[in-house]
Nucleic acid binder design. Sequence first.
DNA 1: TCTGGGGTCCTAGGACCC
DNA 2: TCTGGGGTCCTAGGACCC
Length: 411
Amino acid sequence: MMAGAHILHVDLDAFYASVEQLLDPSLRGKPVLVGGGVVLAASYEARAYGISAPMGVKAALSRCPHAVVVEGHFHRYLDFSQEVMDICHDATPLVEQISVDEAFLDVTGTEHLLGSPRQIGARIRRRVRDEVGLPISVGIARTKFLAKVASGQAKPDGMVEVDPDSELQWLHRLGVRVMWGVGPVTERALDDLGVSTVGDLATIPLPVLAGRLGRATAMHLHSLAHNRDPRPVVSRSPGESVGAQSALGMGTTDRADLSTVLLGLADRVSRRLRKKQLAGRTITVRIRFADMSAHTRAITLPTAVATTAALHHGGLPLLDDARSEAAGPITLVGISVSKLERRTELQLELPFDDGDPIRAGSLRGASALLVDEQIDLARARFGSDAVGRASVVLSSRPSVPNSFRELAEHD
DNA sequence: TCTGGGGTCCTAGGACCC
DNA sequence: TCTGGGGTCCTAGGACCC
């Protein structure tokens, strides 16, 4: 990193749980769990009992019987997130949002205008607390890695600035789990090498590390342990895949049930693709058996697709194939689309009852709204399985009819 | 503690091309 | 009939993150 860079990492504390406490004052000061089967977020009051995501709610309640479990207002979370990101953008245009509740800010060179990084961080924390109502922690350092670790050390509701003159001393005393890229498996592998702190890690020669962890992981961790992190803060790319998945409780072996689940997921994914005006060439289906073993199948198509029917039609054979890996109930089904392309045209298949059961084709992309209206229209006419029936018709035909323009003209 | 839903990145092998 | 070295694309699995 160039000397003198000033990077902030901002991280909302227990985000979902904090929003719930904001929306319902009776939850404030209490242990709050957001989630259903598993804990998605736990308030700090709950964390004091050793609860953390993704622990099962039952297990969490056995540790803290008086914890309050709430389902969560997931649509609201995005709004709160956006308000916070807007505040960040007031400090610098160079904001890299890395998830719903975190971002990096590069404030290098804004000192004259806005004050020191510490003053900027303090102002962001104050504004988020006063204007949004949420606690947020801030880490300040010369690199993204150190800033991220610092915000972790600052939690909850604090701010930590890493002194540029003593970065290594500060970093090396910490446990390796603070590093991005070290999870349970890597932590165990490092433990076998006698490594428990970042300082320990820095003493291990790169070839030894690579032999144990693989080349890329080794180089990554080796660099970070030696405080080398040249990654710049960049405004976020559009994303590389869109997916949806659903856990099925006890699971099922029934193919019709699985097909229905897949259809629902395909519909969710296709709606999001259309909203972003994206389509993808690779469809990946993922399943899980009761023993948690996971299997995936993928296919890459010659052209990008974005419709429910196309995803369902493409994904069902993949699901069938993945199922052959083992016997027993499927406990999770997921589908995702990658190799995304920006679309100027949107595809659509709809069933009709005028003798010709289906028309399919493309529509000029500016009318994403129109497409959603068309699908809603089809649903209203044919019921919720309209798109499912369309896909059945499609699968019985060798090729997709290509005259949707007619449909657009019909309406 | 028996596990949600959204993602990213890496590895290894195979097919295929020149 | 047997065969190098380099590259790209694809697929399956796995680790990790929030």
